[in-house]
């Protein structure tokens, strides 16, 4: 059902965990649907120096979270804002159709975390 890449990220998720002093946190999904993701970011000089996740959800939810953190790490905020759900799915060599919509939320979580950081910075 899942690509080998998805299973690899499910088996060995990259950047799993919380950043206790995160500069921004993005939370997307809800447990009712079976998927909830938190993305934590650490920013220095406009660059994502650390990105971590915690996810409640299916295999696809965990793998897309892991892949998103990998894609985002080291990117500038502008670059990271351009990462799409499609990019995440493509980097995982595709996702089953039914999972494209509901479980592929991590890019949204990343964007939410960046917005949270920008908002906090303004205050």
């Amino acid at each position: 059902m899942y690509s080998e890449k998805v299973m690899d990220h499910f088996r060995n998720p990259r950047n799993m965990g919380e950043i206790p002093d995160a500069d921004g946190i993005g939370s997307v999904g809800n447990p009712t649907c079976g998927d909830l993701m938190n993305i934590y970011i650490k920013v220095k000089d406009n660059v994502l120096i650390d990105v971590k996740f915690k996810t409640f959800g299916c295999g696809a939810a965990i793998a897309t979270s892991s892949m998103t953190t990998e894609l985002a790490k080291g990117k500038t905020l502008d670059e990271a804002m351009k990462i799409t759900r499609g990019d995440v799915a493509e980097s995982l060599n595709g996702l089953p159709k039914i999972k494209m919509h509901c479980s592929n939320l991590a890019a949204d979580g990343l964007h939410a975390a960046i917005k949270d950081y920008l908002k906090k910075k303004e205050e």
Partner: peptide, 10 residues
């Protein structure tokens, strides 16, 4: 509690 069935199955 706190986890999802499909990831358990996998």
């Amino acid at each position: 509690n706190y986890i999802e069935g499909e990831s358990l199955i996998l």
